[in-house]
Design a protein around this nucleic acid. Structure first.
Length: 272
DNA sequence: AGTGCGACCCGAACGC
DNA sequence: TGCGTTCGGGTCGCAC
């Protein structure tokens, strides 16, 4: 499941491989992936090229000469670069074919991902971008910012940290890790979080995300034609998917409960 | 406004 | 070649 670190890894990998290659054709095999006008999608991209790739939260932003292609990978979206002659896999829903006979193929087993092609001047008023909260690395992300956001919320802190309008880019894996770092029980009402704890959330988000990006993400499989490279952050996980294993701090077994329908891993002894 | 939940998907895991 | 059911997970839209 791609989160901010995965998306950043994809961005860096693709930037080395596809920039400034002119698009010859766009093949749409599963239309609902595209949220913007489906009739103009191909027409607005052919003869253009991706001149940069940016990111906002978990949204990838492919820049062309006159537009932005926004792409959200959701659960299982992946990009592959393949030779145009290769067979098209049944999960390859959108194919960007370049004049050099290579393809950028959007692969999504569960078809949850979304794309949105917009004019450049629309970026800041596009809903999905406009409502993104602060990035974990943003200097404006402070304990007082968080306390203000938390103050009327009775929802579990675990649920609130998944809200992209507060901190953008944290997903289930990193929220579990951040709460372990900050020694906060995931079930606590957000409004009960104290200043020192909010500071630890700020610090933990930044440190954990920075480290995960350095390690190439957690679940990344590879975004080139060959499969098999795994994101190495997996080795750094302290609680996520560690049910029953000893807590790295106190040795008691890690718990796994559902909060808001999401798997939440934590140590009930260390996280108060 | 804050909260809760079903819908969207389909492969994997599970039950029998 | 077993087949039907359940589950997961980011985000949205809707009901309360």
């Amino acid at each position: 499941m791609p989160e901010i670190a995965e998306v950043e890894t994809v961005r860096n990998t693709l930037k080395k491989r596809i920039l400034n290659k002119k698009i010859k054709d766009v093949i749409i095999n599963y239309e609902p992936i595209i949220e913007s006008d489906k009739n103009n999608f191909k027409k607005d991209l052919v003869e253009k090229s991706f001149i940069d790739i940016k990111r906002r939260g978990k949204w990838l932003i492919f820049e062309t000469e006159d537009r932005y292609l926004l792409s959200h990978l959701r659960m299982e979206g992946k990009f592959f670069i393949k030779d145009s002659t290769e067979d098209i896999n049944k999960h390859e829903h959108i194919i960007f074919r370049f004049f050099d006979n290579t393809d950028l193929r959007y692969h999504d087993t569960r078809k949850f991902g979304r794309m949105n092609l917009i004019k450049k001047e629309e970026l800041e008023k596009t809903e999905c971008i406009k409502k993104q909260g602060l990035e974990p690395g943003d200097k404006k992300l402070t304990s007082s910012y968080l306390l203000e956001k938390f103050k009327n919320k009775r929802l579990p802190i675990k649920t609130v940290l998944l809200d992209q309008t507060i901190i953008s880019g944290l997903g289930n894996i990193y929220v579990n890790e951040v709460l372990f770092y900050a020694r906060i029980n995931p079930l606590r009402e957000a409004r009960s979080i104290k200043e020192e704890e909010a500071s630890l959330i700020v610090k933990g988000s930044k440190e954990i995300i920075d480290e995960a990006i350095k390690m190439g993400g957690t679940t990344i499989k590879s975004y080139t034609s060959s499969l098999g490279v795994t994101g190495r952050f997996q080795q750094k996980l302290k609680v996520h998917k560690k049910e029953g294993e000893p807590c790295p701090r106190c040795g008691k077994p890690i718990k796994n409960i559902k909060i808001g329908g999401r798997s939440s891993y934590f140590c009930e002894t260390c996280q108060k």
